[in-house]
Simulated scan of single mutants.
Amino acid sequence: MNIQSQHHSTNTPFIPAQNGFFFPAEWHPHVATWLSWPHTEASWSNERQELMFPAYLEFIRTISESEQVCINAHNETVIQTAKMRLLMAGIDLSKVTLLPHPTNDSWCRDHGPAFLINPASGEKIIVNWEYNAWGGKYPPYERDGLIPVEIAHYRHLQYVNPGIIMEGGAVEFNGKGTVLTSRACLLNQNRNSHLTQAQVEHYLCDYYGVQQVLWVEEGIVGDDTDGHIDDTVRFVNADTVVVATETNPNDDNYLFLQEIHRDVKAMRLLNGKQLTIIELPMPDPVFSEDLRLPASYANFYITNGSVIVPTFRCAKDQAAIDILEGCFPDRKVVGIDATEIVWGLGAFHCLSQQEPAID
């Protein structure tokens, strides 16, 4: 059932924030992690896909150690192929649920559902944002746009349709009323050109259940999403962020990340408190031929028991892991080589979407 359609006759759409729903922080306990199994050449050519699967399977294994992994799989053939790969990798299939949900691509953070919870009522709903593959860059994307409703039906959850384009990698939450995002992405003319910044903020507050929107300007070089926040600034607790940091003034990311640092330093939370900033180094540049890839340690993913960090065969890998171990003393910090995965222009956070528990 679509909540919003219940109210069309009275022209009063269901607004999650007004009904006690909110998007919790990523460290909130999960019921499961959702992925979309790679099956086309949309992000990786056949040769590249074979190279990325060892890291992808290790990602699944690590998630499955502390929570269920639910995977959108394009069709029965893909399901059987996935089962074979999972078995060959020694992954416990009882920890993995493969579902026949057709997809165009693998970046579930952006086309997957946004789960909202209401702890007071014990309810969970899905926000079914519109999706256009990062400004219409990679058609076709219609099947990906149906995934939130497919999952709502599978979970027997109600869903609401805001009617505007949004991507999960564009927003970062502290679970206490604040969302971080970037103007380069959410105010881009290829998303919702009819909306002003104030109107975008209104949608974020209404449909994510936040009270404050904090903006940075840009993203990193090579990011085809036009500047997703999950490559630059991430909450590690309600008032602390790690911020991607480039120390080489000759690097193309240097000025962008300096500007982001200034933006974040000037931010104040709802209680007036300044954010605590922890600097997270950028890896050495990763290239595919002449193309700079969006390699960033900030694209980590938090599970119930671990923090999964992309590594890039770089001397800075261990320093990034050490910093994140200090941020998450209650979780195991696991580095997985993402050099082949980032060839598809994303990493572990981009591939995943958490389903929160209700508490």
Rank of each mutant, 00 (worst) to 15 (best):
F59S: 06
F348I: 10
A114E: 13
N132Q: 04
N192T: 09
L187N: 10
P13T: 04
H202N: 14
G272T: 12
Y207A: 05
G346N: 02
F21H: 13
G20L: 09
V241I: 08
P100L: 06
D224C: 06
V216W: 02
D206G: 10
I229H: 05
T240S: 12
A319W: 01
P310Y: 05
Q4S: 08
A114F: 15
V241H: 04
Q49G: 03
Y138T: 07
Q353Y: 04
I3N: 11
W34N: 08
I277V: 14
Q68P: 05
I164N: 04
E167D: 09
F328A: 08
Q197N: 00
K83E: 15
L345S: 10
R292P: 00
V264D: 01
P38V: 10
E325V: 05
E142S: 10
T40I: 06
Y159P: 11
V200C: 12
C314M: 00
Y203K: 09
M88E: 14
K265R: 13
V179D: 00
I71D: 01
K176D: 00
D239G: 12
V216E: 12
N237C: 03
I308Q: 04
I164H: 07
R85F: 04
A55E: 07
W107Q: 10
H261G: 09
G112S: 11
A347C: 15
R262C: 08
K137Y: 05
P16N: 06
V233K: 11
G145N: 15
Q354A: 15
A238S: 14
H28I: 05
G175A: 12
V149K: 13
E65S: 11
G169M: 02
N237V: 03
L180Y: 10
P356L: 13
L269K: 06
G90I: 02
I79M: 14
V31M: 01
Q4R: 11
D330E: 15
A73W: 02
E65M: 12
V334R: 02
V210C: 09
N248S: 12
A347V: 13
I91T: 09
E325N: 06
Y254Q: 03
F22Q: 01
V241D: 05
W343P: 02
E217N: 12
V210H: 03
E41C: 01
M84S: 12
A266N: 14
N118V: 13
S352A: 15
V69T: 09
D284R: 02
F115M: 07
R262F: 13
P100I: 05
